[in-house]
Write a protein that binds this DNA or RNA. Structure first.
Lengths: 243, 243
DNA sequence: TGTACCCTAACGTCGCGTAAAGGTGC
DNA sequence: AGCACCTTTACGCGACGTTAGGGTAC
């Protein structure tokens, strides 16, 4: 805490130290305690004026203020997460050595829009599934979100390289297993969430443009078709051997 | 984007729209594209002056700027996480209905100090273990951190209520299993991290005061003693039955 | 003639940092 | 007398919001 800060707090009526006859400030232990309170609340992001109200008028507002502040900070955190993963996406497209400035910009913009659009997907989810999905996203670190979306991209590419395979072939069955595993990871094994996504994908031609573009680099229709057949094949084989 | 913002960007040389004879601004498609770039970079938290340099002088700095900004945002996120969990702690102590304002403040301060002190724990970890532990903390959401620390607190209380039990009793063995399970969860099953924590706990009388106070509400010495015996008992029983 | 826009200029916000100009303690 | 400290006053930052005062398009 700098001297200037102390003066600042005093002008905002947060501190009222006594003075020596010549005008020097004298900080008593009580002032120090109050200062610690100010610093604690400031560290939570509360504006000094609000702290002044809390400490001078009524401490009873404190729990409410804390709850509000928590909500504010959580919003800020979400914005930060979005910005960070947008940077990740942008850096990923810039890596290969192509400068391509406007492309990078558009990647950033797209990354934001994609994270805006989930609200649009809500219509395909049941209320319960949507609540679970939202909670899951809150619990997931952007880092692991990043890894999952990269795993999808890699899987799509691998599938595109295997379009010629028979659905029953070992290679196709491997891809199908990877697919199902990713579905389990991305949905945390929750069936309601998986159902919501299945419906959302079934109506993907009605998605907003920016969301569609996220899969524009691959032939998503043929991929879905291929995996659908491979999974069907795998399920059939499973029942043939089991029963 | 408000009108005032457009004027502001223009004064900072971020935009240069043409003018009608009477002085009205005319925004061409090129200006719009540039505006979108400004907005995208601003959303990442870059200051407008830096954006001006990037867009006017050299785009080549862009990747470096993005990487730096990512680091800045990740720091901010860590601060935010700390503030959020400090609020959680404070609200948790306020719940029971006791106003107790100064106590709440001290909780907040303590919550910050505890999150500051991990650097002190570094000395007990091998370099490799410390790196793994840092990475694990980065990947863990504050939410789940909160749940884990609450689980520890509950377990401690349950153990305190069972001090009279024999180490070999079913109840003690249950508590030992809960303990080992929490260790596995908190360390993500990593042996290096577990070893680091074991050393850190072994020297807990040399921890800084604020960290010690975190366990001050329970009789941590007897808890550690009790669990040590119970685990030893469990291990012995395991080998007796196996071999 | 109205009214819905546009323009510039300039001050306010928030939490201090940073002088500048001068007094106090020892 | 010197030097390290204190005091008040006031401007600066960053990204605009918000008047105030006046012109323009239709």
């Amino acid at each position: 805490v700098t001297v200037r800060a102390l003066h600042h707090y005093e002008r905002l009526r947060l501190l009222r130290p006594r003075r020596t006859p010549s005008g020097y400030r004298l900080y008593a232990p009580g002032d120090l305690e109050r200062l610690e309170q100010v610093i604690a609340l400031k560290a939570l992001g509360l504006p000094l004026k609000r702290i002044a109200v809390l400490l001078n008028r009524d401490m009873l507002q404190l729990p409410d203020a804390l709850r509000m502040q928590r909500a504010v900070l959580e919003d800020k955190r979400r914005l930060l997460d979005r910005a960070i993963s947008a940077i990740q996406e942008a850096l990923a497209t810039i890596q290969p050595g192509n400068p391509a400035d406007p492309v990078v910009m558009k990647k950033i913009i797209a990354a934001f829009k994609i994270q805006d659009s989930p609200d649009f997907l809500k219509q395909y989810f049941s209320d319960e599934a949507w609540a679970k999905w939202k909670q899951l996203r809150q619990q997931t670190t952007p880092d692991s979100t990043q890894r999952i979306s990269q795993a999808w991209a890699e899987l799509w590419k691998d599938i595109e390289a295997s379009f010629e395979e028979e659905p029953a072939s070992e290679k196709a069955q491997d891809l199908a297993r990877r697919w199902m595993k990713l579905v389990q990871i991305a949905s945390a094994g929750d069936l309601d969430i998986q159902t919501g996504w299945r419906d959302a994908w079934a109506n993907r031609e009605r998605w907003p443009e920016e969301l569609k573009q996220h899969t524009a680099s691959v032939n998503i229709e043929r991929i879905v078709d291929f995996i659908g057949k491979a999974v069907a094949c795998g399920v059939k084989r499973y029942y043939d051997t089991e029963g």
